[in-house]
Design a protein around this nucleic acid. Structure first.
Lengths: 187, 187
DNA sequence: ATTGCATGTGTACGCTCGTACACATGACCA
DNA sequence: TGGTCATGTGTACGAGCGTACACATGCAAT
């Protein structure tokens, strides 16, 4: 018992990669409390670092948000690329889309919420609008490896709708229902 | 010049329907600044009433949000009902859906933003989740007047996707593109 | 071994916010 | 016409926020 009267002053030091951990912590906070509830103090608490560390690593809270959402978009886009890149023909691509929606997109409530949070945040902050648009362009290009331009765009919209609709409903669509919707549209 | 030294003390009185005006002002503020930027003070400024008037008419800020979003959902749902109710056969219903998306939903950027804002807010506040779910149920029932249950649900998702996709893109889909997507799915 | 400097830490400042609450006033009813 | 009270108004308070900044510390280069 030595820290009851004086401030403890943490001994912690030498934490390489802390900046990365802070970005991950930011994503956790955004998913749990929303962008509105995301503060320097809350991120620091989750990452278990002092408040001062935030202002050292980031110039502003907007910078944190931009880096966090960029990481999220990159992560989802990579899965998109991989699934569609592995498909050899159109039928396989259709299966890839079904798996993508059922497993990858609807499988993680965390990612789902992050996506919607990004959408509204992008409506106000230009830096985030750029992130979403780059993401959209990339996923549409991935679809164009197997489908014509018009189909790719429409399919992209359908995917968006299926995901969002499921996310907000009390009874999310089952994999069978997803398959039915995609099949009906593509075959 | 008599109000430079002392507080002006507004003479205003007798403003029936002020509560309604405040709810409308809240919708304006939400659309312009987002739920996060919606405060008692900002709503009061837009409606040109003193701050104290907010706490008189509403028990909390959440109550304001709930009433505002309920009004928004009701307003959109009514248009939905009207368009589909007027359709006499399936072909007319398809046209109604196309008009609905192209004109009503995509026509108003104001309403579009309100809808997305409602979606994320509903993820945190149970009262708002109830609002979105009642809304979804109602629009699906409107579609079921002309389409079978499965088609109605899938069509609802497609509409959601088309709207959201257009809302976030730099180049929103044209009415022709909307028509093409809906036609492909329904005919 | 010394020291410079990137990294890490604690705290203070000014601001805006939701909410509470005391006071004003005029429409309506007896 | 006089009084009541729902409605309208101004202001204060405590909390949480972003950010700035002075101080600590140990790795690396000399």
């Amino acid at each position: 018992m030595s820290d009851l009267t004086t401030t403890p002053r943490r001994p912690r030091r030498h934490d390489p990669g802390r900046r990365d951990r802070l970005i991950d912590a930011a994503l956790t906070v955004i998913a749990e409390r929303g962008v509105a509830g995301t503060t320097h103090r809350e991120i620091a608490r989750v990452a278990d670092v002092p408040l001062g560390s935030m202002t050292y690593h980031f110039a502003s809270l907007d910078e944190v948000l931009a880096e966090a959402f960029t990481r999220h978009a990159e992560s989802v886009a990579r899965v998109f690329d991989e699934r569609l890149g592995a498909a050899q023909d159109r039928d396989a691509a259709v299966e890839a889309v079904i798996t993508l929606v059922s497993d990858d997109l609807l499988g993680s409530r965390h990612d789902l919420i992050l996506t919607v949070e990004l959408y509204v945040a992008a409506a106000r902050k230009p830096a985030l609008k750029a992130v979403t648009q780059a993401w959209m362009r990339r996923s549409r290009q991935a679809l164009e490896r197997h489908f014509d331009v018009t189909t790719a765009r429409e399919l992209d919209a359908l995917i968006e709708g299926l995901v969002l609709h499921s996310a907000l409903s009390t009874e999310p669509m089952t994999p069978e229902q997803i398959r039915h919707a995609v099949d009906r549209y593509l075959r």
